[in-house]
Every structure is written in C-alpha cells, then in structure tokens.
Design a protein around this nucleic acid. Structure first.
Lengths: 359, 359
DNA sequence: AAAGCACATTGAACCGGTTCACAAGAAGCA
DNA sequence: TGCTTCTTGTGAACCGGTTCAATGTGCTTT
C-alpha cells in the first residue's frame, strides 16, 4: 500500500502556523519518515520520482529540519567555546581573541564571540543562551564585580559547565587568567614620581569593574609607599572609552587652565581613555608631554598608528587569550574535576613619547 | 519496590570513559530517570535523602545533562543569529555589530560573532558549525568572491537556512546589504582630479575580495570619465591591514623619493591602510597633505582620535548592521520564502585634513 | 511457473532528556 | 478499622529526527 497513513502516529497537517516536522512532510508526500530522511540526506537509493515528490512537499510546507534532533542525540563532541567580551570597539579583545582562536583551532575547537556591550544584563542573557546550547565552555570578561546578581555565574558552576574568567570576580572560586593590575598601576605611578612628578591624577574606569578598582588601588599604594600624600581627588571618575577620556579630559582640564595648579601627569584606566584625553589636551592647547605626562594601560596594537607614541603598561593580551583557552580546554577534556587555577601574567611599563622628566 | 532495575531499559554502568546519561545516574542511584530529572530541575517533590542520593550519583559519574535533549525537542524558538566577520582588529565590524545587536536585542535575538580571521577555510568551518546548531540565521561578511569553493554557501541555501551577505558574492542569488563601492571609490578619485591631481594611485585590498575589486574598478572608471589616461600601475596591490599599508607604503614611496615622479595623491582600500600609509610617509618625511593627499575608506569611528583628520568615504556601518539584521529577521519570521533582496546604502565623501588642492 | 535478485521503501527502535497521570505508602481523621 | 489526603516516586509516552533489518515489487533467469 504505497499511500495512506504512514507510521503508527498519524501527524495530520494542521493548517496552523506551527513549524512543520519530518512527519508532516512524510504524510503530505504519502511516504514514511525514513524516506523523507533519506531524501534530505541525499541517499542514493531514492527513486527520482519519489525524491521530487518529497522535495515538493518539503517546499510546500517550507520545512527545515530541526538541528537539535539531527544527530539522533548520539554523543557528538561539539568542540566549541564561547568568549564573552565587554566591548568590541576596544581592540584589546581582538588581541585576546587572537590568542584564544589560535589555541582553539589547534585543538579543533570553534570560538563564538559575544559582546556584552558593557551591560551586565546582556552578559547574563548571553551566559544563559550559552547554557541552552552545546557549548563546551566559556571564557568570560565579566563586566561587574560588585554585589550585584551573579546568579548566572553560580548557575554555571551548579551545572558543571566549565568557564575561565579574564578578570577577577570576588567570591567566585574559579579559574582565572589576569595580570596584577594593582602592581602594574602602582609601577606606572612610581615611575612618574621618580621622574619628579608630584601632582598626579588617575582617570579611572567604571567603578563596578575589578580592573578599574585594582588600577585605582595601585595609585593609592604607590603614594602610600612614597613621601607624597594621597587624597581621593586624585582619582577622577572617567570610564573605559575614548569618548569618556575625551569628555572628562575636556571638562577636567578646561576647568583649571592655570598650569601651576593642575596635575603634571595622568595615568589612565586604559589606552583608549588616554587617547581620548590626548585629543582633549590637543584641543585645549596643552602640550603632551611638555606640560602633562600621560600613561595608558594595555598597549594596544593600534598605538603604533599614532604619530605620538603613548607610554603605557603592556598587558600580554594575546598570551592571556592563549592561556585562558588552554586552561579551559584542559578542564573540558579532563574527565575529573580540576581545582580552580589562577594564572597571573607579567606586565611591563613601556616608556615612549608621552612622559617626561620634571625639573 | 523502591530499588532495583528502573525502566524497561537497564542501562548498565560501563566503566568505559563514555559520557554518562541520565539513565546511568538513575541506575546507580537506584531510582527512575524521572526522579533524576526532577532532582536536576529542582522540583520540590523530592525527599531530601533521595535528592542527596541522586546528587551523589551525579557527582560520582561526573554527569552533565545533554543540552541537545534538554527541552524534549519541544519547539523552542532559539532566536539567535550568527555574524561572521573577517577581522576583529578592524573596528569596522565593531560598528556593524553595534547595529546588528541593537536590532537583535529589540526582537529578542542573541548575536554570536565569529571571526574568520581572513581565512576562507575558517569561514567554511564556522558556517558548518553554525549549521550544526540551532542558529536561526547568519550574517556573513564573505572573504572571497572568486571561483573558489563556495559549497558551504550553497549548502546553506540547500538547507533553507536564512542568511544575508554584507558583501556581494557573484553567482549567489541571496539577500545582501552593501554600498556602491564602485561609485564611492570613483567619487573619491574624481574629487582628487577636480582638485588638480593627475598622478593618483590606489592602494588596493586583497584581490579575492569583492569590495577590493569594486574599489579598484571605481578608480578605473573615474579615469575613463576624465581626460587623464588610466594604466594598470595605478593600482598598487596592498592588503587590508594597517600593517600592509605601512609596509607597502614604505616600499613604494621609499623607492621613488623624487617628488616629480611620484604620485601626488593616494586613495586607499580602507582607513586602516590609509593610517598605515600615513605612518610610513611620516617616517619617510613626506608631508600629508602638502606633498601627498590621502583618502581612506570606511570612516572608522576611531579616526577622531588622530591629530590629523583623514579624508575618507563614509560607509554607514551601523546602518548596514541594522538593515542586514532586519532583513534577516524578516526572512526568519516569515513562514513563506521571500525573494532575495538587495539593499544599497549611500556613501559620502568626507573632506578633512589629508587632501589638498594642487597648483 | 518458480526462483533469484536488485531496487525502493518501510516501520520499529533508538537517542537522552521532560512531562504527567497515576500508584504506593504514610499520615490524619472519624 | 476503614477512609481520605498528602507526599514521594514511577513508568510510559513523547519530542523529531536517524538507522537498519526486513519487506515488497518488478524484472530476469532457469
């Protein structure tokens, strides 16, 4: 009996807008599910007329096979990880990604990159989405590190999903790859002090970010180890974008144009802020480094493009990506649960053209 | 009988390294699969002792639920799309992503970004990986547009998977969002000719890229509509990175230091190349724009950061991202197959500080 | 006409979870 | 003791595909 009801189940073709299944196609074409499956998978045993018949039914229903059922649940090693970055416009993450991707490719993994756009709500949604999928592990550059809701992170732990952080999160005992931000920032300030600067300020990043707090803490620490006095007005709230650096720079230095009062040196949360600030100072006709010395943080690859070479703290971004990916994959591939591992990489202060000795 | 074999199936616990399933856990704990499922999903109807017993078994086997079977195949709207970019270090894509993400968020979609790192083999692998997953559609900035193997693209069509290109691919009839690169490039050259330049060259991008070929073609076209003669040496093979612009610039202008012979203006494949070239010219002590006028392409947001403002062709990157995402989502959500749609956005030549009138 | 064979198609079992009606045992109550 | 109610756990059915042994059909061959 070549036509009629196919399987035991008789999935009638509802005219509603639900997504069609292989059974709908089979019943419309008057064949068995397995025949439809064979057509879809280009098996050679299908008669041309049957194939056309089935294809017509597929087309009529606009059928698309569900990928979640595709492999019959056979245990497929998916070999993919997801990297969650904060901000794609910061090429910092492009350099990290490069390291991640190199390791991943070597080991046959694919890397998905999602941007949380600096919004922690988005970070949560991305993490949740990753949990829904067959993703073997996550690398996360977390946005917040304060007392806000970290439940998505704990959910990852509860579900035994592997992840490695690219920035410390207090109270989350997990693997981590980072640099010693406090020390690196303190080194930069100490250098300025050595060079004779005494009026130094720090253009700080977002208050909720761990990197930002650590770098501000570094400034404090450098002063406390020096004869100079520290006070809180040395930390200027700014942000993490070049736009923030530009706007805050314009406002801050536009207000005190008297060279006797204003700082002689600024350390910045990151290179982008420093570049934005440089632009503001250029507009205000304040010379760098003659009137103000400037230090960035990260040593972005693109600094090379600028005519004036920024003094900055080099962060081994590519290497961080590599090591984080390696850590993650070791976790994924070891069948036993490994203890969280913290990797701390070295930074280096790169002296270039935006700092000058005073007196 | 509270303990013993559970279901009809008796999945014995192999000591091999295979991934454990919920049945293995159930049989080890001596309960039904459904009980294990209830524990995993934090149902309240489970006695504390049972819960602990099951959790112990889960822990012992190091069990992780398979996410592909998680939702019982109920028709879940995944609502996620994947954006495949060429090169993360080019902030061009960060701006496109921004537009994509804004539309996607509005509509409840999540965006995965993958970088093909300029390697077409990687692009293929990423596309294949996306096909394996529950991804509703793809936005692709294709690397190559020559006669190489495009089977992964055709496979997408065959499988009825929605995708929109961000750069034309010959012979692939599909939806597309782009600008008129030929016209935009010709406009730039025409402007230079109007300003009195006659020795103009174009630093071209990779030969296999459609954008690159279209922009070179624009140069040709501008000359053919002018009294000046075109010849092929006006197209200088370069690349798409600032590094390429720098190296080729050093070589090209290092070779002909005589100002009488060398070009007075250069149009570049993109802004990155132009910035790299500017750096090379700076090192060669050739003044921009006094000795050489320079035009970029893209109008990257980060151009603002530079002391010298680059004249360039503005490409509406954010808008391209928005429109491509909207096109894709319309495709995804319409049950019927829509005809491919080509969207062509407007460009604008932005005159800034790197071009000058001659004579 | 019977046997043999290739080809095309089928249907049941399966993948690894979730769901839910129902059952068994304990506790409460008359 | 008998009846109801509550708590806890069960097992079959199901999700949407794939797989493969078995079956049916038509064509040759003997």
């Amino acid at each position: 009996m070549p036509s009629g009801s196919t399987d035991g189940t008789a999935p009638r073709l509802e005219k509603s807008a639900k997504n069609p299944t292989i059974s709908n196609v089979a019943s419309l074409a008057g064949v068995a599910k397995s025949t439809v499956s064979a057509v879809i998978n280009n098996k050679t045993t299908i008669k041309e007329s049957t194939r056309r018949n089935v294809l017509r039914a597929i087309d009529e229903l606009n059928y698309r096979p569900s990928r979640s059922a595709q492999r019959g649940f056979r245990h497929v090693v998916q070999r993919s990880i997801s990297l969650i970055i904060k901000e794609p416009e910061n090429t910092y993450y492009a350099e990290v990604l490069s390291g991640v991707q190199d390791v991943a490719m070597d080991r046959g993994y694919l890397v998905f990159v999602s941007s949380s756009q600096g919004q922690s709500g988005l970070e949560r949604r991305i993490v949740e989405q990753c949990m829904e999928r067959e993703i073997d592990g996550l690398l996360i550059a977390p946005i917040r590190n304060d007392e806000t809701d970290l439940s998505h992170i704990f959910e990852l732990k509860r579900r035994n999903i592997h992840f490695v952080l690219l920035e410390n999160m207090q109270g989350v005992p997990t693997s981590l790859v980072d640099v010693d931000n406090v020390k690196a920032s303190a080194d930069a300030v100490r250098y300025l002090i050595q060079e004779g600067h005494s009026r130094i300020v720090h253009f700080a990043g977002p208050h909720y970010s761990e990197h930002s707090r650590a770098r501000a803490e570094g400034v404090r620490r450098a002063f406390s180890h020096s004869p100079l006095a520290y006070n809180d007005s040395m930390i200027v709230p700014c942000g993490d974008s070049h736009d923030a650096g530009y706007r805050v720079g314009l406002e801050y230095f536009g207000a005190t144009l008297n060279p006797q009062e204003r700082p002689t040196a600024v350390t910045c949360y990151n290179d982008l802020v420093a570049l934005g600030l440089m632009r503001a100072l250029r507009e205000l006709n304040i010379s760098v480094p003659d009137e103000i010395s400037l230090i960035g943080f990260d040593d972005l690859h693109m600094l090379q493009l600028f005519p004036q070479q920024l003094t900055t703290v080099r962060v081994p971004k590519y290497e961080m990506g590599r090591q984080a990916a390696e850590l993650l994959m070791r976790d994924i591939e070891s069948k036993t649960k490994a203890a969280p591992e913290k990797v701390c990489l070295e930074t280096e202060l790169i002296i270039r053209d935006t700092t000058r000795r005073i007196l």
